[in-house]
Design a protein around this nucleic acid. Sequence first.
DNA 1: CCAAAAGTGTTGACTGTACACCCATGT
DNA 2: ACATGGGTGTACAGTCAACACTTTTGG
Lengths: 224, 224
Amino acid sequence: MSAFKLHVPPAVTADTVIFTITDGKLKVLLVKRSRPPFVNSWALPGGFVRETETTEKTALRVLKDKAGVSSVYLEQLYSFDEPGRDPRGRVLTVAYFALVDFAKIKFVEEKNHEPSAFFGTRSLPKLAFDHAKIISYALQRLRYKVEYTNVIANLLPRQFTLSQLQEAYEVILGHKLDKRNFRKKFLTLGLVKPANAKVSGARHRPAQLFSFSKGGMVELKRFF
Amino acid sequence: MSAFKLHVPPAVTADTVIFTITDGKLKVLLVKRSRPPFVNSWALPGGFVRETETTEKTALRVLKDKAGVSSVYLEQLYSFDEPGRDPRGRVLTVAYFALVDFAKIKFVEEKNHEPSAFFGTRSLPKLAFDHAKIISYALQRLRYKVEYTNVIANLLPRQFTLSQLQEAYEVILGHKLDKRNFRKKFLTLGLVKPANAKVSGARHRPAQLFSFSKGGMVELKRFF
DNA sequence: CCAAAAGTGTTGACTGTACACCCATGT
DNA sequence: ACATGGGTGTACAGTCAACACTTTTGG
């Protein structure tokens, strides 16, 4: 159907690195491949672009099918087309990364689906294709981006405690942050505002809930 | 020849935003299209990926053909595949951006080549396809990147005066910088080191030449 | 001797970092 | 009453931003 007969184009796929936070860890969704190549290896969820799809649509479809979520933060990461990255032939993949609040995920465990699971980014299994490289690229991007934007909002519920927020940063950046300085930063920058609700029920002082003050993406001179 | 018969893949091209600095301006190389679509419009240099090429190879080939340069800074920018971006059908383009020292450019003005010229980024003509969007994306990336890396080295000759370096920053960032603070920054960070040569011949005090101290890419907490 | 760009330090404001104790609750 | 995580302020160091005059050369 293509109007370009000169060259046989590469096949095009979209793969998505779906990040979420649970168990105090940053995790990535992987699916176990049920067919060759790389049968039984874990791989990023992804698929071929259909004829009426953009790569972004493909990524969204996969996100819906594999993680059961539909309104999510999704950002294009990078395109990979090294020869040999797919043993079947030339495949260009446009990689995306998504940030999802773990509470919003509905695992779609239908019979015809491949098994999928979240893996901590520090304990990944062997991965199919060049997916290890893609994940490491995504991690790097995420670490950069949380330092000068409010993207991290997408990994948290609408309301959260400052300790939860701090833990999210620590898990992503891979190091501890100072509690007093952390709170000062967010409050004086006006990035978050207190909700009128607290979390009680734990056997300690109840925590104030906050939400991000701006809805969209906010960019700042980096704050760590 | 593709092993994937399920879906007709989009055509794949690579377009390159080639930046250089001359006349105290940041400029971009454009070519005048000699065939439809968009005949006689200016467009980014680019082309379809050939069967044995990666998109990066395509970008390098175009760089060689259109600007006559071969060892250049080249970085993948973003992939664009909005439907309708090419009237001929589905075309995914992987956009790259390149930084070239103007002195290294050899215009390749062969008879069968389309005319090409550098345009100041503030005075671009009407552009074919979504190339205006691609350029603005590239500009944004470049502005970010010069603030926390030494990429700017690729736009300058090996040796340069601090005034030239400062001017390069000013042209890219779009605002003046303080001379004393600028010099202090670079010298105390150790990013540049003095060469043992000066520029004389102008009717003013001769300027010390410098070169970047590290060869590869250096990343820092941003410096402006 | 004049025009032109090169070169050079100090100060005050602000930002980042280190650090330790009391508070409110549930059990 | 005690264990648990929530919540708070200060002081010092480092970085950033503003600012003006002298130097060296060519013409």
